[in-house]
Amino acid sequence: MTEETLNGASIGAGALLSVLREGPARTRTELVELTGLARTTVSQRLDALLRHRWVVAADTSTSSGGRPAAAFAFNRAARLVLAADLGVTHHRVAITDLGTTVLAERTADVPIDREPESTLAWLAQTFAELLAESGYDLANVCGAGIGLPGPVEYSTGRPVSPPLMPGWDRFPVPEWLGERLGVPVLVDNDVNIMALGEHWVGYPEADQLIFVKIGTGIGCGIISDGRLHRGAQGAAGDIGHIRVVDADEVVCHCGNTGCVEAVAGSAALAARITASGVLAKDGRDVVRLLDLGDPEVVHLVRQAGRETGDVLASIVNFFNPGAIVIGGDIAEAGEHFLAGVREVIYKRSLPLATRHLRIQASKLGDHAGIIGAAVMVIEHVLAPQAVDTTVVV
């Protein structure tokens, strides 16, 4: 290790900030020992981070018998993040700090199939209202993260042929919203940001994780080696149109037959329950009926779990995740859906692939999306290279 590198990476102000983000408060002496930098270099870069409020003096201090040495910690309150998880019919909007603590939030039932300008204008207004109610303004904000219920080309932040979002194809969401907010805007599909949120808060130890959202559609987010895997064009994880065995008679909105989304998605499940003689309009109704203990609903929910497990078994054999996390409306159905998923995965997957596999419900519930949207921004803004461009040493 040389004075200017740590594990082969240059130690600028951004890398020094990463050390403080990932661990406890540190003294200047400890930072010198950790980085291998000269004490004067550490002091210069630490002072620059203090000026920009990225770090603060910590309450804790250490002493070897003389005057206690000051310790420094990452300042989670240095900036705010705007986060939004936009669903097909239900939206959640929030403000968080740099540690993903939610400071203010609001939910609304607003259909996504309105024109994008109308939805995004509502979103910008909601952000402004939450900031005002919390005593902040846009000057405190470092970025905005948005999740959309459809395919997104992550490099541009533009939706690409989203089946449930008419009028949104290739719409410049980051540019349109960024002009009105005056901050960087990052956009991804809703399942990817949920996977980020679950990994960041719920399962930080699971470096190989699959997050599956069971809603109107079915999709999955893939965490590989601790990082979100988006694929070449950002389309990784679109499992909703994988064919389920013995479901050829079910026609999907995509034009194919047997898609798992058309068989086991919340809308499909509600329709099957209604056909059995019990009215269910959506996933929320499914969960409500399940709580009432209706035996036919229990049977159909477990069967939907088996059909989802049929698709996931192949993914387990291919990817060998350490954890599968189930989220979305149907995740609230509890063990009935999960039991069906587990039954088929353990039956059809290799024993080695399932030896230590955990299959569990989401820990964050309907907050996974806004937490993940905030994480997306935080990781972008606080990347060492990004910090180095804004912090003058």
Rank of each mutant, 00 (worst) to 15 (best):
residue 1 M to W: 07
residue 2 T to M: 12
residue 3 E to P: 07
residue 5 T to W: 00
residue 6 L to V: 13
residue 8 G to F: 03
residue 10 S to W: 00
residue 11 I to D: 00
residue 21 R to I: 02
residue 22 E to W: 03
residue 32 V to T: 08
residue 34 L to E: 13
residue 38 A to P: 06
residue 39 R to N: 05
residue 40 T to G: 10
residue 44 Q to K: 15
residue 46 L to H: 04
residue 54 W to K: 04
residue 56 V to Q: 14
residue 57 A to D: 10
residue 58 A to W: 07
residue 61 S to Q: 15
residue 62 T to M: 10
residue 64 S to C: 02
residue 67 R to G: 02
residue 70 A to S: 13
residue 74 F to A: 12
residue 74 F to R: 08
residue 77 A to I: 08
residue 81 V to G: 09
residue 91 H to M: 10
residue 92 R to T: 05
residue 93 V to C: 05
residue 96 T to G: 04
residue 96 T to A: 05
residue 101 T to K: 15
residue 101 T to N: 14
residue 106 R to S: 14
residue 106 R to N: 11
residue 107 T to M: 10
residue 110 V to S: 09
residue 112 I to V: 13
residue 112 I to A: 14
residue 114 R to P: 11
residue 117 E to H: 15
residue 126 T to E: 14
residue 132 A to T: 07
residue 133 E to K: 14
residue 136 Y to H: 15
residue 137 D to W: 04
residue 139 A to V: 09
residue 140 N to T: 13
residue 140 N to Y: 12
residue 143 G to Y: 09
residue 144 A to L: 06
residue 145 G to H: 08
residue 146 I to G: 02
residue 149 P to A: 05
residue 151 P to C: 10
residue 153 E to A: 13
residue 158 R to G: 00
residue 166 P to S: 10
residue 166 P to C: 11
residue 167 G to I: 05
residue 168 W to G: 05
residue 169 D to I: 07
residue 173 V to P: 06
residue 181 L to G: 04
residue 184 P to S: 03
residue 185 V to Y: 02
residue 198 E to I: 12
residue 198 E to W: 06
residue 201 V to R: 14
residue 202 G to D: 03
residue 209 L to W: 00
residue 211 F to Y: 13
residue 221 G to Y: 01
residue 222 I to C: 09
residue 223 I to N: 06
residue 224 S to T: 07
residue 224 S to E: 14
residue 224 S to L: 11
residue 225 D to W: 12
residue 227 R to S: 12
residue 229 H to M: 09
residue 229 H to F: 14
residue 231 G to H: 06
residue 233 Q to R: 15
residue 234 G to K: 02
residue 236 A to N: 10
residue 237 G to W: 01
residue 245 V to E: 14
residue 246 D to T: 11
residue 251 V to N: 07
residue 254 C to Y: 04
residue 255 G to L: 00
residue 259 C to L: 01
residue 260 V to T: 04
residue 264 A to F: 03
residue 264 A to P: 03
residue 271 A to D: 12
residue 272 R to K: 11
residue 273 I to G: 01
residue 276 S to K: 09
residue 279 L to Y: 11
residue 290 L to I: 12
residue 291 D to M: 12
residue 291 D to R: 15
residue 291 D to G: 13
residue 294 D to G: 09
residue 295 P to Q: 11
residue 295 P to R: 12
residue 295 P to I: 02
residue 298 V to C: 06
residue 304 A to I: 05
residue 308 T to A: 06
residue 309 G to P: 11
residue 324 I to V: 14
residue 327 G to H: 04
residue 327 G to D: 08
residue 330 I to W: 05
residue 330 I to A: 07
residue 332 E to R: 15
residue 333 A to H: 03
residue 335 E to W: 06
residue 340 G to R: 05
residue 342 R to V: 14
residue 343 E to F: 01
residue 344 V to S: 03
residue 346 Y to R: 15
residue 349 S to Q: 08
residue 354 T to I: 13
residue 358 R to G: 04
residue 359 I to V: 15
residue 360 Q to C: 11
residue 361 A to D: 00
residue 363 K to Q: 12
residue 365 G to T: 09
residue 366 D to N: 15
residue 371 I to R: 01
residue 374 A to W: 04
residue 375 V to W: 02
residue 376 M to E: 01
residue 381 V to K: 10
residue 382 L to N: 08
residue 382 L to P: 07
residue 387 V to Q: 11
residue 390 T to S: 13
residue 391 V to D: 05
